[in-house]
Simulated assay, not measured.
Amino acid sequence: MKVGKRLENINEGNNFFYLTVALVALLISSGLAEVVGSGWIDRVLQIFIIVVFIVCFASLRFDKNWSRLLKTLATCWVIATLVKLIFDIREMDVLMLALTFSFFFGTFKSTAKQVLFHGEVNTNKVVGSVALFLLLGLMWAIVYLIIIEYSPNAFTGLEAISWGENFSNAAYFSFVTLTTLGYGDISPISPLAQVVVYLEAIVGVFYMAIVVSSLVSANLEHREKNNG
């Protein structure tokens, strides 16, 4: 009952706070899951992804088109998870990764539409821009995991293990690349992996400039309409 009331309290004035907290919790849980043990990592991570699904649905339900698609993605993801657990079909891993990427991409698109392109800039929208950054890193992490599924030796420092066990490492490498830190402990080897990595670095460089200019532009437009 308390969880239901919490979700009901999510509105257009605070929805991105909940979304950002859910994404941060997902990143933290992926790291903590490794402490539990390899047999539990996939399940713990899957539980947190389901929680993120629920919070994202509640946070972005104001975008009707995305909320309908989110229901479809969530249903397919749950079915794929059950099939994976029951029949242990390897191809389900790739399907689950593709569904997860679609989820992050759709969430990014819906959030960007609400944050960057209209309305007055407030604290909720600033937090939303943080959520956009987290979603970028998570999308690229999923892409890296898909690459590893088909090319296990595409990266040095990333082992060809289950995506649940590898998610934390892929997310770490993704955000290190997105922020252009480049520690070097994980490196791309295959040509495809190298292209994907430098594309993420380019996006990371331009992200802040694009977000700041969009927020300023939206705020000025809102003020002009009010003053006009």
Results as ranks from 00 to 15, higher is better:
Ser102Ala: 11
Phe101Thr: 02
Gln114Cys: 07
Ala131Glu: 03
Asn122Tyr: 10
Lys113Phe: 06
Ala98Asp: 01
Ile89Gly: 04
Arg90Asn: 08
Leu95Asn: 03
Ala131Leu: 09
Phe105Cys: 04
Phe108Gln: 07
His118Trp: 11
Thr100Cys: 02
Lys125His: 14
Gly119Trp: 13
Lys113Glu: 14
Thr123Trp: 11
Lys109Asn: 09
Ile89Ala: 11
Val127Ile: 15
Val83Gln: 01
Val126Trp: 07
Ala80Thr: 07
Leu97Ile: 05
Val94Ser: 02
Val78Asn: 01
Phe105Tyr: 07
Val94Asp: 06
Phe87Leu: 09
Leu85Ala: 06
Ile86Tyr: 11
Ile89Tyr: 05
Val78Thr: 11
Phe101Ile: 13
Thr81Ala: 11
Gln114Met: 12
Leu132Asp: 08
Ala98Tyr: 10
Leu85His: 01
Asn122Trp: 12
Phe101Tyr: 10
Val121Cys: 15
Lys113Val: 10
Phe105Ile: 12
Thr81Leu: 08
Val127Trp: 04
Leu85Trp: 03
Val126Thr: 13
Asn124Trp: 12
Asp88Ala: 10
Leu82Gly: 03
Thr123Ser: 15
Ser110Phe: 14
Lys84Gly: 06
Ala112Gln: 05
Ile79Met: 00
Ile79Trp: 00
Met92Arg: 01
Gly128Ala: 15
Phe103Gly: 01
Val127Gln: 09
Leu95Pro: 04
Val126His: 07
Phe101Ala: 11
Leu132Lys: 13
Phe105Gly: 01
Val121Ile: 06
Gly106Arg: 06
Thr81Trp: 06
Val126Tyr: 07
Val94Asn: 09
Phe103His: 08
Ile79Pro: 00
Ala98Trp: 07
Asp93Tyr: 13
Phe103Val: 04
Leu97Ser: 07
Val115Ala: 10
Phe133Met: 15
Ala112Asp: 14
Lys84Arg: 13
Thr107Ile: 04
Lys109Met: 11
Gly128Leu: 13
His118Lys: 14
Leu85Arg: 00
Asn122Met: 05
Ser102Asn: 04
Asp88Thr: 11
Thr100Leu: 15
Trp77Ala: 10
Ala80Asp: 08
Phe105Gln: 03
Val130Arg: 04
Gln114Tyr: 12
Asp88Leu: 05
Asp88Gly: 02
Thr123Leu: 08
Phe103Pro: 00
Met96Gly: 05
Lys109Thr: 07
Lys125Tyr: 03
Thr123Pro: 01
Phe87Cys: 01
Lys125Thr: 15
Glu120Ser: 15
Phe101Asn: 11
Trp77Gly: 02
Leu97Tyr: 03
Phe133Asn: 13
Ala112Gly: 14
Leu82Met: 08
Glu91Val: 01
